[in-house]
């Protein structure tokens, strides 16, 4: 029973990690696109901004996706 539950946990973590990392990278891509469109940014600001956007996006999406997949498996 323990093994089965661990396997389910791993599967939830894998799926949610895929989705929250993907979404966060999507936000970074959006950020980079906007910097290109607006223009005039120093490379350090672009890199810093991309990292900060990624961190915040991960924080927002990580619990959302994890909870979503947990609910789906529970059903």
């Amino acid at each position: 029973m323990e093994t089965k539950s661990t396997a389910v946990d791993r599967s939830i973590l894998r799926r949610s990690a895929f989705w929250y990392t993907g979404t966060s990278l999507g936000v970074v891509v959006l950020f980079l696109t906007l910097t290109e469109l607006v223009g005039g940014y120093r490379i350090a600001a672009v890199v810093g901004g991309a990292i900060w956007s990624f961190i915040l996006s991960m924080i927002v999406t990580m619990p959302l996706y994890t909870a979503f997949f947990k609910r789906r498996f529970a059903q």
Binding site: V27, F31, L34, T35, V38, A45, G49, W52, S53, L56, S57, I59, V60, P63, L64
Partner: peptide, 17 residues
Amino acid sequence: ILAVHALALTVFFFWFF
């Protein structure tokens, strides 16, 4: 908490761009 982080991201985007 999540809403605040989303807001922080929005605030960052607004002031940055």
